[in-house]
């Protein structure tokens, strides 16, 4: 069957005009104008372009469009409509965990990916969970505290 790559983007079925070899990152930013997906390194090192693919954290810069045919893709734009996001957002704000903000969309989705399979992580588990998300303002401690707080406050949500 010939056609186009289709997928579920933030709970909506979409069809992309992109090539199968295109970076998902570029498709999300340029075709679907979801600019919460940040481009930092284009080599899977920094995590700024993190998205959830079928609920699993992925660096969209090293994902080819053709590999996500029929998958569910969640970006920060879709995730920000959830209750879990509200809890994380409040916790990040309380600890002033957001400095320049560039890493934060990816950091929040990494937080979600961690909490969704480990609702009560230890500090070490949190640090491992966000180990692929670089914050060049180096505000890691505040981010770790925010995730700890979100885990407490959001008890039952994850």
């Amino acid at each position: 069957m010939s056609g186009k790559i289709t997928f579920i983007l933030n709970n909506e079925k979409v069809e992309s005009n992109g090539k199968p070899s295109d970076r998902l990152l570029d498709v999300l930013r340029n075709e679907f104008e979801l600019t919460g997906v940040k481009c930092g390194c284009k080599e899977g090192e920094c995590g700024a372009c993190s998205v959830l693919i079928d609920g699993v954290l992925a660096n969209s810069c090293v994902v080819a469009l053709g590999s996500i045919h029929n998958c569910h893709v969640t970006t920060i734009e879709g995730y920000s409509k959830t209750k879990r996001f509200e809890v994380l957002s409040k916790a990040y704000a309380n600890f002033s965990a957001v400095q320049c903000g560039f890493c934060i969309p990816g950091m929040v989705l990494a937080s979600e990916a961690l909490l969704s399979h480990n609702p009560h992580p230890t500090e070490a588990e949190i640090r491992e969970g966000i180990s692929g998300n670089l914050c060049r303002c180096t505000g890691y401690n505040a981010i770790v505290h925010a995730i700890q707080k979100a885990a407490e406050e959001g008890n039952g949500l994850w």
């Binding site: 070899s21 284009k42 899977g44």
Partner: peptide
């Protein structure tokens, strides 16, 4: 997985 291939991200014919 694409994590190495996509670092160069060229317009190759891929078998997914």
């Amino acid at each position: 997985g694409g994590t190495d291939l996509m670092v160069d991200a060229e317009d190759h014919a891929y078998l997914f």
